[in-house]
Computed example of a mutant assay.
Amino acid sequence: MSRRPSRPVRVVASALAAGALLTTAACSDDGAGSGSRASEASASPLARQQPTYSPSPTLTEAGAQAALITEADIEDDWTQVKDTTAENWHDSLLIGTVDVSDFLTAKADAADCQRLLDSLFDDDLLGRPSGASALRGFEEGDSRLLYQVASYDRTDPQDSLDWMASLPQKCDRFTANDNGEQRTVQVVETSLPDVGDAREGLLVTVQGTVDDTPATLTLNVAAVRVGADAITVTAGGLDGDEDDSVKEALENGTQRLEDVRAGKTPAASPS
Rank of each mutant, 00 (worst) to 15 (best):
residue 47 A to R: 14
residue 59 L to R: 03
residue 65 Q to N: 12
residue 87 E to L: 11
residue 83 D to V: 09
residue 57 P to D: 11
residue 64 A to M: 07
residue 65 Q to C: 07
residue 61 E to R: 12
residue 47 A to C: 10
residue 55 P to H: 06
residue 79 T to R: 12
residue 95 I to R: 14
residue 52 T to Q: 11
residue 87 E to T: 08
residue 89 W to M: 03
residue 59 L to V: 05
residue 49 Q to S: 14
residue 53 Y to M: 13
residue 57 P to A: 10
residue 76 D to H: 10
residue 96 G to L: 09
residue 58 T to Y: 13
residue 58 T to G: 04
residue 71 E to D: 08
residue 64 A to L: 07
residue 64 A to P: 03
residue 90 H to L: 04
residue 83 D to Y: 01
residue 62 A to G: 15
residue 51 P to S: 09
residue 51 P to C: 06
residue 55 P to W: 09
residue 68 L to E: 07
residue 50 Q to A: 14
residue 79 T to G: 03
residue 88 N to Q: 15
residue 94 L to A: 10
residue 48 R to Y: 06
residue 80 Q to F: 00
residue 73 D to E: 08
residue 67 A to M: 01
residue 79 T to A: 13
residue 48 R to W: 07
residue 83 D to L: 06
residue 74 I to G: 00
residue 79 T to Y: 00
residue 79 T to M: 05
residue 72 A to G: 00
residue 58 T to Q: 11
residue 50 Q to I: 14
residue 48 R to V: 13
residue 86 A to E: 10
residue 71 E to I: 00
residue 92 S to G: 03
residue 73 D to S: 09
residue 64 A to D: 02
residue 94 L to P: 12
residue 62 A to N: 06
residue 60 T to E: 07
residue 67 A to F: 05
residue 69 I to T: 01
residue 79 T to K: 10
residue 74 I to C: 00
residue 64 A to G: 03
residue 73 D to W: 03
residue 66 A to L: 08
residue 55 P to N: 04
residue 55 P to V: 09
residue 91 D to E: 13
residue 63 G to D: 10
residue 68 L to W: 05
residue 82 K to N: 12
residue 62 A to W: 05
residue 49 Q to N: 11
residue 54 S to H: 12
residue 74 I to M: 01
